[in-house]
Every structure is written in C-alpha cells, then in structure tokens.
Design a protein around this nucleic acid. Structure first.
Length: 277
DNA sequence: CGGGCGGCCTGGAGGC
DNA sequence: TGCCTCCAGGCCGCCC
C-alpha cells in the first residue's frame, strides 16, 4: 500500500526528529520478513550510531548513520515505521525496535511481513542488489517526458503495467498509476508504444501533480497507513477513480469501470480515457 | 528477453 | 455469531 507519497511522508516526519539522535539499542523480535533479517549484522552496524539524515530511493527509506552505512527499510504493503515518544506496550506485529537516546522508539510494525529491514555500508549501496534494477524517480527534475517516451516506445505492454514496473519508473503503485492515467486521459490498456511525445508530456505532468498533491495531504490512508506520528493521510478523499468502480466520473458523469490487469484492479472512465489502438 | 503470473502473508469484508 | 473464502498488493522468481 505505501507508495512514493506515503514513504515520502514518513521520510519527512523522521527527518524532523532523528538527525543527531543516537540509536542506543536494537531489538529484532521477528526476523522472518520479506527477506530474513540478518540480526547480528543489524545489531552490530546500527547500535550506538548517530543518525545523519533520512533519504528515500523508490519506496525504500534510507536512514544514514554515522558509521557510513544506511539502515534500509521497505514497508511492503502493510508496514509502518512509528516514532513513539513514550514507551507503549509492544504489539503483535512490532518486529524491529530501535531505541533512541532521547527515550523515544522507532518501531517497524508489519502485519503481512512483506517489508524488509537491512543495513548496508555506503560503499556497497551503489551496488546493492535491490537497487540495481530500479528505474527513474518520477519527481527527479532531470527526468523528462522525452526520456520516458524514448524508453517506452520499445514496450508493447499496457501503460498501466509499465507505470507500475519499478524497472521503468519507481514509486508508482496501483493507486497513483490509476489516478495519473485518469487525469492524463489515457486508457490503462493503451500499449506503451502507442503513446506519443505529447501524451508523455501530459502523463508525466499529471503523475507529478498527483504524487505532489498526495505528499501535501500526508499520503493515502485506505486501511492502515499512518505516518511516523500515527496520523492518517487525507489523499483518499481526493481519489478520482481508484476504488470507485460503479460511481460517477466527476468529469463527465459516466460510470467508472473496473478491469483486472496483471492481477491488479484498474479503475478508469471509458469516456474520458479513450482507448487508441 | 519481454511479459505474465504465482507465491509470500494477514486482516478485514462479505456470504451463509 | 462464527466459520469459510476471497481479496488487497510490492516484489522476486519462475515460466513460456
């Protein structure tokens, strides 16, 4: 569930609190995450380190530490990274706890255990296997619509699937792929190589609008997303098509459709988003 | 090799 | 009210 805006929301909250603070103790209570946590390595490389800054790559959070390494956290689909200023009872799915020197706690909570926690030295980060195949950052100003157009014209896969393909562009999950395509008036089944340069100009612009707006509204809370302070986001109130099959299109009044692509629901307005083939 | 899909995992929703 | 089934989805790995 957490896509780029939700991860970015958490990054910004952590950035206000963590830099300069020391992690005094690390406690891995459950190591069976998406990939098994190397408990000894995490304990050794994180404990007693001071947080320098907090960055993001794709949907990964990078908490940079004073020993030139980074704590790498992915929230999967149900993960939370909570900053608790007072000690509260541990919950069933509180898998990794980081104690901070101001007596607060950073807790990785993840019922479905699709997330991951790892620590990587800065030198190894550029060669980190999980980052090796990642595509463009949509909010990077160096990424232009022409770059995307040139890369996409070799692909026949539907544009919705391409937007969710992290080897092409990162951070875009099902919610924001659907929303961006709606605003750009592009049908989700459109073969990627059928999109022209002006289509890509519009699509990148609308994708950035949607992601930026979602960050401003603190992300989208559908089931369980909360930021590091335990607060929900508000962007779900602004969703135009996602989860709204059978409802009325705000633009034209026709009914919003739902289809399944690559095992994922797509929501769109067949009137506003004409399929060109 | 591009593209599709199964599997991981649990909680919540819906049906009976 | 309780049990069962289904669905959500990021990512990897397997398959054709």
């Amino acid at each position: 569930m957490p896509e780029l805006p939700e991860v970015e929301t958490i990054r910004r909250a952590l950035l206000k609190a963590l830099p300069g603070r020391k992690i005094t103790e690390t406690n891995v209570r459950e190591s069976r995450l998406r990939w098994p946590v190397d408990v000894e390595k995490v304990n050794r490389m994180v404990t007693d380190q001071v947080v320098k800054t907090v960055e993001r790559r794709a949907k990964y959070l990078l908490i940079q530490l004073s020993n030139e390494s980074s704590l790498v956290v992915h929230l999967g689909m149900s993960g939370q990274l909570l900053l608790l200023t007072d000690s509260r009872p541990l919950q069933k799915h509180d898998h990794v706890i980081f104690h901070i020197d101001d007596r607060s706690e950073l807790r990785f909570r993840d019922p479905r255990r699709f997330g991951m926690v790892d620590v990587v030295s800065s030198a190894a980060l550029t060669r980190y296997p999980r980052f090796a195949g990642l595509g463009f950052e949509p909010l990077d100003v160096h990424v232009t619509h022409d770059i995307l157009f040139q890369k996409a014209k070799r692909s026949k896969k539907p544009i919705k699937n391409l937007l969710m393909d992290a080897s092409f562009i990162v951070g875009v999950g099902n919610i924001y792929a659907n929303e961006a395509l709606f605003y750009a008036k592009i049908h989700p089944l459109t073969p990627s190589n059928k999109l022209g340069e002006t289509d890509w100009q519009r699509l990148l612009e609308k994708l950035r609008d949607v992601l930026t707006q979602a960050i401003q509204e603190g992300g989208t809370t559908l089931n369980d997303f909360v930021n590091s302070n335990g607060e929900t986001g508000y962007f779900q109130l602004s969703l135009a098509v996602y989860g709204r099959s059978g409802e009325t299109c705000a633009n034209c009044g026709k009914t919003i459709q739902r289809i399944v692509q690559a095992g994922r629901s797509s929501f769109f307005c067949a009137t506003c988003q004409r399929l060109k083939s």
